[in-house]
Design a protein around this nucleic acid. Sequence first.
DNA 1: AAACCCAGTTTCCGATAGTGAATTCCGATG
DNA 2: CATCGGAATTCACTATCGGAAACTGGGTTT
Lengths: 210, 210
Amino acid sequence: MTASNDQDAALRIASGRKPFVEPLRLGERLKEIRLANEWTLGDVSERTGLARSTLSKIENDQISPTFTAVQKLISGLDIDLPQLLTQPRTKTRTMGRRDLTRRGEGQQHPTPTYEHELLSCELAQKRMIPFKTIVRARRFEEFSEWVRHDGEEFLMILEGEIQLFSEFYEPLHLARGDSIYFDSDMGHALVSVGEEDAVVLSVCTPRDGH
Amino acid sequence: MTASNDQDAALRIASGRKPFVEPLRLGERLKEIRLANEWTLGDVSERTGLARSTLSKIENDQISPTFTAVQKLISGLDIDLPQLLTQPRTKTRTMGRRDLTRRGEGQQHPTPTYEHELLSCELAQKRMIPFKTIVRARRFEEFSEWVRHDGEEFLMILEGEIQLFSEFYEPLHLARGDSIYFDSDMGHALVSVGEEDAVVLSVCTPRDGH
DNA sequence: AAACCCAGTTTCCGATAGTGAATTCCGATG
DNA sequence: CATCGGAATTCACTATCGGAAACTGGGTTT
């Protein structure tokens, strides 16, 4: 859960991930979008400033458009690149995944300071990672270093009281029902301050952000 | 909160959103990535199969690379397009945003069936939207149609008991502490079934997913 | 200082993307 | 069936991209 602090981390590339080029039927996608809007090549030509002939060739994979052409497309049709490159969500990954976690039946993940219980861990490819945490730590000193991970985190106190330490702010006292949202690459650490150990519901964004 | 059911919705384009082309300093980005990895143009040439000269020209915006060239880049350097097009997060938007919401002090948003309380609504550009909901509905019939919105949703029962109706599953009974994660474009509806009105913590992914 | 090396740039030319005009395609109409 | 009209494709030409090689600038060696 502790991530590298290196400034260039986001730029440097981990070697060797996916060896092959994705097929990327760009022309096909363009045609889908055009037809879905009931546009003719002429319409699209007006909107984008690209010639009808060019558009036709792109749709039929007869040429590989220049990047400027792609820009004209995305700005003219008012779409963004992801939309052009990937199948529309509704086709590929829609529809009704579901993952129930009954109270206390998440996947336990104990550490010295926190006892995490991962919720909804049956589901892969989530855009949020929810878990319930019992905060065992009683003193800030029990943390060897800041907890830190890319993305954003939301948490709400379910039971007890905590002190939220963070890198750029004064410690904050949070009681049951209080909630907070923060950029989780800012160092943070939770400490129980009530009678019993505090219980916290957290939701994080996943590693890469999408 | 109720979204269109239209199959083509994801393809059809809402007219006029951002009128201008984003600058998209592609060459600049490429150079950043190359330097961050301490690669020479020769190195990148070997990895991607593009000539040194070509790479130089791309970096200096002297040519607009063909889309096939871009593909060679992303596969050779093992990055993905979003990475090539957008500044790395760590530079642009990092660092320590925070938004505290004390119990009961979120932004109220009542509907006939639900009473929503938006949490952390000071913060724009979130990747998650948390809110607490009091479920007033007592019968499924009180919903005129399915609640439905793009993205994913996580929810946990804080108080009371609910029945979760959903488009593709049998109704599910959820008690305090139970949680569920689901694709929220699947129609869904919550009904209180306990003595008191149920209270639910929900977190949704935002509109576009990024 | 001349010779050399290395990374990056520029030049030149063949290949190919982009354009307007001409052609083909196809459903609707008389 | 001929033909008309709009839409898509093909054609012929120009602009531009992509690659090999020559050039430039800075540092090191002899």
